[in-house]
């Protein structure tokens, strides 16, 4: 510093300008080498499984199966049962129906009480390939809404208005067809509560490195 103070004004100015020239050149080099700042790399985010964007309903109704030409062997009752032979249901001590082993895939869980533990509340005992309502109407196996509606009035009313369950296709009816899903497209008639499922992945933050610890806040 002593040295600098003793210099004349011109010499000092020259000295400052020389240093600045050097600094500018150094800076130019550093800019060209891109020594700091942003790197264009992003943290990878896996593409979401296409199952999560499938519009399929959670199950196939009898109507869906028949329409799509799928395997309808489940509805051919008389492949095993004998026609015109009355069928006796067996119940356990609790009053729950005993599901025969041939129908082990059926989980009985319709309603929270035991009254609905009777196959012939809905199936016609004289013709197993038909459904029957409490008021004695006989319905095809693919005609679930009318059957379900005979008990679930308000829900049936909503369904008829297109408000319960999904209505797909065109909201504007004159521009294209609508596709009404029926009760059994979503509900298993023997165990109707809507099934739980794996949720699709949640959102990824824009700056995971910065706020990885900041973003996660789960109260579960």
């Amino acid at each position: 510093m002593q040295f600098i103070c003793e210099m004349s004004a011109t010499v000092k100015t020259n000295w400052v300008l020389r240093v600045l020239t050097a600094l500018f050149l150094g800076l130019a080099m550093a800019f060209l080498c891109n020594g700091w700042g942003y790197s264009a790399k992003l943290f990878p985010i896996p593409l979401v499984d296409t199952n999560f964007i499938s519009t399929a309903t959670v199950r196939m109704s009898a109507a869906d199966l028949i329409r799509s030409g799928g395997d309808t062997s489940d509805f051919e009752c008389y492949a095993c049962h004998e026609r015109n032979k009355p069928f006796k249901l067996k119940f356990d001590a609790e009053g729950d129906v005993l599901v025969p082993k041939e129908h082990a895939n059926i989980v009985m869980g319709h309603g929270r009480h035991h009254r609905n533990n009777n196959c012939f509340n809905c199936h016609d005992e004289t013709n197993l390939e038909l459904l029957q309502t409490r008021d004695g109407r006989h319905l095809k196996i693919s005609d679930s809404p009318a059957l379900c509606g005979s008990c679930h009035g308000p829900t049936y009313r909503d369904w008829e208005a297109g408000v319960h369950g999904r209505t797909s296709g065109y909201w504007k009816r004159d521009l294209g067809p609508i596709d009404r899903k029926v009760c059994t497209s979503c509900h298993n008639p023997h165990s109707p509560p809507f099934p739980s499922r794996q949720p699709a992945p949640g959102p990824h933050p824009l700056h995971p490195a910065v706020d990885g610890k900041l973003i996660a806040r789960s109260e579960s």
């Binding site: 369950g165 999904r166 797909s168 909201w171 294209g176």
Partner: peptide
């Protein structure tokens, strides 16, 4: 005249 995509995919209606 179609429904939006979020509606079409909703499994619960």
């Amino acid at each position: 005249g179609k429904y939006p995509a979020c509606l079409e995919v909703c499994p619960a209606g």
